[in-house]
Each structure stands twice: as C-alpha cells, then as structure tokens.
Write a protein that binds this DNA or RNA. Structure first.
Lengths: 245, 245
DNA sequence: CGAAGTCTTGAAAAATTTCAATTCCGGTGG
DNA sequence: CCACCGGAATTGAAATTTTTCAAGACTTCG
C-alpha cells in the first residue's frame, strides 16, 4: 500500500455509528454478557460503536491507552513494530473477543482492522467503573486474560520451536477454530495477506508462500485462490502442528 | 542430569514447611498483599508453604490443575515440551510473582524449580473463594494477568524477530530488572543453565554460548564464570535489545 | 488496458543448527 | 590430598535451513 492510499484510508477510516446492543451479533460471546441485562442498556455512557475500513488504525503504539475494544464483526490485528520496521502481528482478533486492557499507560502495539470491521469501544474509565460495580464483569475479564495468556504461551512455543511448515499448519487450524467453522466444511477464508501471516509466524512472506505450496503439494490443503484454503487432511495438519491443539 | 540423579531429586524434592506469613520475605510484593490483613492469618486453610530442591517438579504438563503458586524465594521455570522433546521455557518466575492460574483443566506446562526455592501453594478452590469474597484480590489477579500478557507479547516479538545476540541482550536486561538489581551493581547471577536460556530464547545451547562470547568480545559484558555476568555497557545492550525495554 | 500491489518461484547468500571435539569444573572415591 | 569422572560450557567445521535478492505471474482497480 502506498503512503497515499494509507492516508486516504485514515481519513475516512473510522465512523461512529449508533450503539445497538439489542441487535448485537455477538451479544452472548462479548464481554457485555457478563453485565446484568438492565445495565447493558445504559452502556452508551462509556461505549461507542465504531465502524472501520480495512487497514484503519484504531490505536497506535506509543499513544496513551484510552479505550479497549470488543469486536463485533470483521477482524483486527495487534501489531508491534521495531524502529527498523521489523514487525510482528501479536494476534488476530475475531468477533466476540476483547482487546486493549493493559497495565501500561501507553499502547505497546497498534490495533488495526484487517478487513472492514465493527467494534464497541469502551472508555477505560468506564471499564474501571464497571469492574468496581460488577464483580462478574471483572471475573470475566480475568477469565479472558487467562485464556489470552494461554494463547500467548502457545504462540511462544510456536515461534520458538516449530518449523515454518508446522507453524503454518498450526496457524490454519487455530484460525479455523477461532472462526468457528463447522468441521464438515473444508473451506475457509484467509482475510489477512501473506505478509500479515508472515509477521504473525515470525517468517518472511516468501517462506510463508513456499510453506503454503508445500502443504498443497503434500495434499493437506487446497488453495483455490490466495485468500481461500480448503482443509483436505485435518488429521495430517494436526500431526504437523505437533499437539499445539 | 542422569536419570538416577533425577530420581533422587524427585524423592526428596518437595517438603511442606510451616506457613509463616508474618516473616514472609515478599509480603508486600506477593498476591497476599491484596487481602485484608486479618485474612492473611487464616490462609492456612488454602495455602501451604513448600520447599523445593533444584529441579524439583511442582506440577507436570498434562496433570489436572489443582494449585497456583506464589514464589517467595528462589526461581521457577515454566516448561512446555513437545512429543519429540523440543522444549520451551515459557517464563522464569521470581519471588513475588504468582503462577498457575489458567482457564484450562490440565496444565499445559510443567512448573519446576531452577534453584532451591520456596513457594506458597494455593488450592484453586481457595483462590476461587478468595476471589469471590475479596474484590481487591480478583482485581490484583487481573492486574497481574495483564502484566503477564504484556510480558508474553514482548517475548513473542523477541522470538519472532530478534537475532540471537539481540535476544540474549534483551534477556539479560529483563532478568536484571526482575531480579531488582541496583543499577550501580554490574554483577548479576545466572541461576539457570545455558540450555534453559536456549530453550527460553528459542535457540540452541551452542548459539547461546556463542552469543555470550560475542557480547563479551564486544565489551558489553564480562563473564567471570558461566553463572555470572557483569554488565559493562548497559547502554549498548539496550540498543541491541531494540527498544524491548 | 495499464499500473500497482500481491503472491509465487528460483537461485544465491547468510544465518543457525548439527555434529564433533575440547575444556572446564565440581564432586567422588581411592 | 589428588586423580578421575561426568555434566556443562565452549569452540570449530560442516550441513541445513531460512532469508535475501531477483524476476515473473496474477489480480484488482481505476
């Protein structure tokens, strides 16, 4: 993407839209489900619904933390970047998930939309308030933090010890799980580009591309086009992924 | 370590000793500080103090989770192992820190003592109870979980994108911080062996050893013996560590 | 239809691992 | 007290893997 394009995206990339919890697509999955139902209706004080274009930036590394986000549609990525532009995608965030809680005053990573997405943005002050008033809210946040930590540990093992092929197999299975695709449907979309995958798996785009090709050559997957995979042999992929699932 | 030695360690590796919170070395740092003082005295119901020999195993991957641990002295390591013996040290745990909370029913990693250590072992049932009764306790747990998550994200960036030399520099600075060594004291001990460091940084022992040598050759550190480092140029190390601090 | 960006593929270069050997050290037993 | 043994750490050389560099194919979108 040229800097021109990026600038254009930024300009129109965010739009605040009316909050409509009653019709929320992830009402039961989202963090909001841990609040007593009457409370949900008074969330407008703290929460705004935001619509994002692809590649829109919701928060930037270095900026003070002000909000946390509950994803209702689309996909986000958390990106850390070093001074020399080395990049890592710490996580992809799917609907129902919640990101942005931290004990730090400034963001360590930027939060960006992979595809057009919608999020509910919670003011951190509001979250503080909700945590104090509703133990169930704090309880759920802790549960989620523990799960995120488990996931991060998985990712560490993947990055530290798996081969490129194993990393990709593991990534595909994990993404599939997160996207809640039914087992009998082999198709899955890959909304993110190869370079996002590479930066997520600690590889180069070329190595990711070659790994896709090898998985295809081994008959484990099919690639109708670069943005779609068919899982032909989930067993085989699982074996490759070395018990990371 | 031979299997004979290991067996011997196991046998006498754990000893339950009397709980003595009044004289706890990490009383203010530990999770206990978030409980109202009178409550601390009745902790015996849930908590036992355990003394561990070096390499003793406090929990094993695959076992059901029953306890969580607050370290009061020594050092623990969290270890994940693949079927083919590839290993990763997810974290080193120092006094004042708390490990073992998870949303999973079984441990994903084993918990082992790096050096002779002492921990307070909390029954998970007890933790559940304390969480329900004391919002401040749950609040602190969430704070710590958020910090651990931030740390895990740091570790992911390190594993995904830093060179061996950068990883080692980052590791040394980080460990130094955790051990709370005064800035004016260049000496620091490395309680863990090279293979633990390797498995923490996603490298081989040989590469770790060579990286130590290179840091020494560049005048950034001195190595009086394999278990001790002197930081000669903290600036230089910091630069190498690429803003991971 | 052309331009830009993305993805794939090939070949060369660089980095890390693997294999092998040596050194160093602490503990053990003669 | 000293020699020996075993584990840990270091070092060197070869082998492997991944990255880097380069080029071509394919898509998408004005």
């Amino acid at each position: 993407m040229t800097s021109h394009t990026l600038a254009r995206c930024r300009q129109h990339s965010r739009a605040v839209v009316p909050l409509d919890c009653a019709r929320c697509a992830v009402r039961d999955l989202a963090i909001c489900a841990s609040l007593p139902p009457p409370e949900v209706d008074s969330l407008e004080r703290y929460v705004s619904s935001v619509e994002l274009q692809a590649n829109a930036e919701l928060a930037r590394a270095g900026q003070p933390c002000r909000q946390a986000y509950s994803v209702t549609s689309g996909m986000l990525r958390l990106v850390r970047t070093l001074a020399d532009a080395r990049r890592q995608v710490v996580a992809f965030v799917l609907p129902g998930h919640f990101v942005g809680l931290s004990e730090r005053a400034v963001h360590r990573h930027s939060v960006e939309a992979v595809v057009p997405s919608r999020v509910c943005a919670f003011e951190l002050d509001g979250i503080r308030d909700l945590r104090e008033r509703f133990p169930s809210f704090e309880h759920t946040l802790l549960q989620r933090a523990c799960r995120d930590l488990d996931d991060a540990h998985d990712a560490m093992l993947l990055l530290a010890r798996l081969s490129p092929l194993e990393r990709l197999a593991s990534f595909l299975l994990r993404l599939r799980e997160q996207m809640k695709i039914r087992d009998d449907d082999p198709r899955m979309a890959l909304p993110m580009g190869r370079s996002d995958i590479a930066d997520h798996l600690g590889l180069t785009v070329e190595t990711v591309s070659r790994s896709f090709t090898r998985l295809r050559e081994q008959g484990l997957i099919a690639l109708p086009d670069p943005q779609h995979v068919e899982i032909l042999d989930a067993e085989g992929l699982s074996e490759l992924a070395s018990a990371l699932h």
